[in-house]
Design a protein around this nucleic acid. Sequence first.
DNA 1: TTGTAAGCGTTATCAA
DNA 2: TTGATAACGCTTACAA
Lengths: 340, 340
Amino acid sequence: MASRREVAELAGVSEATVSRVLNGVGPIREETRRRVLEASERLGYVPSALARSFARSKSGNLGVVLPYVPKAHLFSAYFFSEMLSGIGSKARDNGLDLLVMFQTPGEVMNYTDLFRRQKIDACIILGARYDHDELAAIQQLDREGHPFCVMNQHFTGESFFEVDADHVEGSRLAIRHLTDQGYRNITFLNGPYSYSNSQERMEGVRLGLQQAGMELDPSLLLEGNYSRRSGIEAAAIIAERLHEIDAVFAANDRMAIGVMHGLRERGVRIEDFPAFVGYDDSDAAEMAVPALSSVRVPFFEMGEIAVSKLMHPAEALQSPRTLLPTELIVRASSSSRFRA
Amino acid sequence: MASRREVAELAGVSEATVSRVLNGVGPIREETRRRVLEASERLGYVPSALARSFARSKSGNLGVVLPYVPKAHLFSAYFFSEMLSGIGSKARDNGLDLLVMFQTPGEVMNYTDLFRRQKIDACIILGARYDHDELAAIQQLDREGHPFCVMNQHFTGESFFEVDADHVEGSRLAIRHLTDQGYRNITFLNGPYSYSNSQERMEGVRLGLQQAGMELDPSLLLEGNYSRRSGIEAAAIIAERLHEIDAVFAANDRMAIGVMHGLRERGVRIEDFPAFVGYDDSDAAEMAVPALSSVRVPFFEMGEIAVSKLMHPAEALQSPRTLLPTELIVRASSSSRFRA
DNA sequence: TTGTAAGCGTTATCAA
DNA sequence: TTGATAACGCTTACAA
C-alpha cells in the first residue's frame, strides 16, 4: 500500500501533480504524466476513495431504499432484483456505488439524515408507502433540495422525480384481451387502493370495459394485498360464482396464482378454470399451471431510467414523471386454444 | 445544517467535547453532556459520516458482491434477496451500511482494490465462481488480511470464512424420503459439478441410496445448469424412461419445475408424474403444481451468520466454515397420499 | 505546466 | 473532566 507521497517522490513531482494525473485534470506535460503513471503502477498505489470523498464532500454513493421484504413475501423478490440490477448497471456506468438500505417495519426512514451525514449523494426509493409520515419525509427531502427518485408510486400533487410503468394501459390491454375473446364476466382482483398503482389499474380496467361496451360490475371487484394468500382467499368467493365468472384479472402474478391454487384446493379442475391474466410477468408466471398470461413491466429499464434522471436532473425536470410502456404477454391461461 | 462549531459555541464547550459526547467516549460531566445534546438537537446538527470515516479510516460499509443475475435468471432472485435481507438486518444491528456490487460477466472483480480504496471494511461474496481467476482474487484478499466471507461455495484446501448449508444432509434427506416411500428408480438432476454445492448434493444422494441398500445408477444421473430450461431439457430424457423412473430429485426448485413443465409439454398427465423433490424451498416450490417438496435452506440466517463472523473474527477463526442445517419440506409432489 | 498550501470535518493524543 | 491541536489523504485555488 504505497502512499501518494512515495509516488510523487519516485516520479520526481509534487503530490499535487500525482493527483492531477490520476484525476486527469489540468494541463500536464505528457512526459510527466507518463512518469507518474509508471511510478504509481510500480508502487501499486490506489487512491483512497474515502479521502477523495471527504475532500470533495461527495460520497460517490447512490442510496437505494428497499421495503422490508424478508419473510413477508408480500412483494415478489423478482420485482426488486430486476430493478436493483437496472439501477446497479446504470450506477456503475456513472461511477457510483450502491448503498442499499431496508425500511424498518414500524418506523419511517429518515431520508434527509442520509444526505446530511453525507452517506449518499442521491437516492432511489423503491418501497415508498403512501401514508402521511412517508410523504412528509419525502417532502422534506424535496424541500432541502436533495436529489431523489421514487419508483412505482405516484404522489399526486407533487412533482417528485418518479419512474413508473403505464398501469392504466397495462390493465386496459389485459381487459381488452379478455373482452376480445368474448369473456363477459371478468373478476378484477386488485391490490390495496392506497397504492397509486392499484388505482391506475382500476382506471385501466374501467377504460377497457368501457371500450368493450361494458361496465364494471362492483360485485366482481375484489381486493387483496398482493400476496398469494390473498389470492387464495379471493378464490373462495370466485369459486362460488364460477357459473357466471368466466375470467380473472389479478393485479399481480402472485395473487393470480393464489386464485388458481385456491380454486384447485376447492376441487375445480384446470379445464373448468376461468381465463386468467396476471400482472408483472414475473418468472412465476411462466412457472404457473396453466402458464399465466401477464402484463410485462420493464423493471430493469425502470431502474436504469431512475439513475439517468438523477444524473441529468436538468433534463429530467422537463418531465419529472416517467411512465414506461407495459405489454401483454399471452400464455395458456387466457388463450382460447388452451381453453377450447 | 449546523456545524459542530456552532454546537460547541452554543453549549459553551470545545468542539472536541461535542465529539466526545456524540460518540459517547471518554468521561464527561453529566451537565456538559446534557448541554451539548441540547445544543446539537436545537441546531439540528448531524455529524458527517464522510469526515468521520476519513478520520477513522473506516468506511463503515460492508461490501456485498452479487453475481450477474439480470436477464439470465440462472439463479433464483429468491435466493439472493433472502440472503441480502439477512445480511442487511445484521449489518444494521452493527451500524454498518451495505454497499452492493454486481459481478460483471467476463471480468473478475478486483476485491482487494475495494479495500485499498477504502470503500469497504469487510465483504461478503455471494456469487463466487469456482475458477482459477476467482480463486486467485480471493486468495489475494486473504493474503492481504482483509476480512471477507464466502457464501454458498466451498474452496477446498483454503480456510476462508465460509457460510453454507449442509447440502450433503439435505440431499440425503431428500433421497431417504423417496426411498422410504418405496421409490426405487430415482433420477438425480444435479447442477454443474464445478460448484462445491453440486458435489455435496451428489455425496448426499450417494449416501442416501447406500443407506437404503441401493446404489447410484449412473444412467439416472443428469446434469443441468440450475435453470428452468435445463429442467425442461432433462424432461426429454426422463419422459422416455418414464416406465422405469418413479422419482426425480433436482438440485434446485427451478429445474424440478422445469422437468414438470417438460413432462407436461410431452403430454404426461399429473397423475402419471413421478414423485418430485426440489431444492431451496423457494417460493416457487409452493406455487408449483403439484406443490413441490423441497429441501429448505436457511438463506436469511446464512446472511446473518456471515455478518456475525466478520464482526467477531476471533471466534469465527475456531471454525471458519459454518454449515447450517437443511430441512425437508414435504408437499404434494412426493407425498404418497397425493400419488395414491 | 507545476509547486505550495489551505481546507475539508472529524478523531485522537497530549496537556492542563 | 475538558481544551488545544495534530493528524487523516485528498482536491483545488493561487503562485510561480
